[in-house]
Simulated scan of single mutants.
Amino acid sequence: MGYPVGDKILLEVAERIKASLRGSDIVCRWGDDKFMILFPKISHGDDLEKITQRLLNNIGESLQLSEKVLYLEYSMGCAIYPQDGHDSKTLLRQAESRLTNHKKEMRAKNKRYNLTIDPKASKLLKAKTALEEALKHQELELYCQPQIKIRTGEISGVEALIRWNHPELGQIKPQKFIPVAEQTDSIISIGEWVLRQACLQNRTWQDMGLPNLIMSVNLSPLQLKDTNFINLVESILGETKLAPQWLELEITEKAILANTEIAHQVLQNLRQLGIHLSMDDFGTGYSCLNHLPKFPLWHLKNRSVLCTRNNRKTRKYCYYFSSYRFGKQFGLTGYCRRG
């Protein structure tokens, strides 16, 4: 891009840094692409963490020059006096060492992104920027997969699925980009889009006079931790005028067991709104059956690989069948998902 563009980037970052600092803080350029900041009157890591977090939030992860969106990569190393040293040389050496370690961590993270996305996606400048652009330019599309009662063939509900129609790479399946979205926190905005579109679609069907169906939407573990999630769900239901009994939220077994206290509270709040709840991929992780009665669940969902005729003599199938019967004792309905 050349030196002029590089200079513009440095100037923009410098302005963002200055806007983040207190009046007593000092910032200077320390090399070609480095800035050094002196924070007076900081005696422990908690204060430094708050200030640096504000700094990172204000710098952001992208900036726009002309018509191009550029993704910023930056690393940070900190040292505190007197814990990390009593003179400037020692403190700088400690900060440089931590900066180097942070760069290594960032490279490892970027490598994971590349492994997660399809090889064709190497054409993308950065995964997070591409996903944000996909939302902005309406490249994401909602698909609805019917849920069918085996005995009657009746459609009992639908599950909302997402596809990414990339202008260069074509259609990208969620297995390729959802893990990246979760690593970059883009899943919060994508999850909000899916929830809103799913509720809007279900309400549209109802307005057309079609039979009422429950729309099932997958919930990310990061959404489960989002303190604003309950308010968001209420807002979307009000905005789309969809009654809560026609919405179901799915959370994986792994996500529930990762933090049972948070999961229990969030699911209880959702249940109080009248929303259906289900545990997805049940039986594929480290299942603990004594957790089932503790959560306000309606359904258990399993992958079809556990339910096929060829697997009926395997330990996995026996485990699934026993778990299903156990759940049924608590009024939970079982689903078997294809794919």
Rank of each mutant, 00 (worst) to 15 (best):
residue 3 Y to M: 10
residue 4 P to R: 05
residue 5 V to Q: 10
residue 5 V to R: 06
residue 11 L to Q: 12
residue 13 V to C: 08
residue 14 A to H: 04
residue 14 A to Q: 09
residue 16 R to F: 01
residue 19 A to S: 14
residue 24 S to E: 14
residue 26 I to P: 11
residue 27 V to W: 07
residue 29 R to Y: 06
residue 30 W to I: 07
residue 32 D to T: 15
residue 34 K to D: 10
residue 37 I to N: 09
residue 37 I to H: 07
residue 38 L to I: 15
residue 40 P to R: 11
residue 41 K to Y: 12
residue 43 S to H: 10
residue 49 E to P: 04
residue 50 K to L: 14
residue 51 I to Y: 05
residue 65 L to N: 01
residue 72 L to H: 03
residue 72 L to R: 04
residue 73 E to A: 04
residue 75 S to N: 02
residue 76 M to W: 00
residue 79 A to H: 01
residue 80 I to V: 07
residue 82 P to W: 03
residue 85 G to R: 04
residue 88 S to T: 08
residue 95 A to K: 08
residue 98 R to H: 07
residue 98 R to N: 04
residue 101 N to C: 06
residue 109 K to P: 01
residue 112 R to G: 04
residue 114 N to W: 07
residue 115 L to S: 12
residue 117 I to K: 07
residue 118 D to H: 14
residue 122 S to K: 12
residue 124 L to V: 02
residue 126 K to P: 00
residue 129 T to M: 11
residue 136 K to R: 14
residue 144 C to S: 10
residue 144 C to K: 11
residue 148 I to M: 10
residue 152 T to F: 07
residue 155 I to M: 13
residue 156 S to R: 15
residue 158 V to D: 03
residue 158 V to K: 12
residue 159 E to Q: 12
residue 161 L to S: 03
residue 161 L to F: 08
residue 167 P to D: 05
residue 168 E to A: 08
residue 170 G to K: 09
residue 173 K to G: 09
residue 177 F to D: 05
residue 177 F to K: 05
residue 178 I to C: 06
residue 180 V to D: 09
residue 186 S to N: 03
residue 192 E to G: 06
residue 200 L to Q: 15
residue 200 L to C: 13
residue 202 N to H: 05
residue 202 N to L: 06
residue 205 W to Q: 13
residue 206 Q to W: 04
residue 208 M to I: 02
residue 218 N to I: 08
residue 219 L to N: 09
residue 219 L to Q: 09
residue 220 S to L: 07
residue 221 P to V: 12
residue 221 P to G: 11
residue 223 Q to P: 09
residue 223 Q to V: 08
residue 227 T to M: 14
residue 229 F to M: 15
residue 244 P to G: 05
residue 246 W to P: 01
residue 246 W to L: 09
residue 249 L to W: 06
residue 250 E to S: 08
residue 251 I to C: 06
residue 251 I to E: 05
residue 254 K to P: 00
residue 255 A to K: 02
residue 257 L to I: 14
residue 257 L to W: 01
residue 257 L to A: 07
residue 260 T to G: 00
residue 260 T to W: 00
residue 261 E to G: 03
residue 263 A to Y: 00
residue 269 N to W: 07
residue 269 N to S: 15
residue 269 N to T: 11
residue 279 M to I: 11
residue 281 D to E: 13
residue 289 L to T: 06
residue 290 N to Q: 14
residue 291 H to P: 00
residue 292 L to G: 05
residue 292 L to S: 04
residue 292 L to R: 03
residue 293 P to A: 02
residue 294 K to Q: 13
residue 296 P to Q: 03
residue 305 V to W: 03
residue 305 V to P: 00
residue 310 N to A: 14
residue 312 R to M: 14
residue 312 R to D: 11
residue 321 F to V: 06
residue 331 G to F: 09
residue 336 C to L: 12
residue 336 C to N: 08
residue 338 R to T: 11
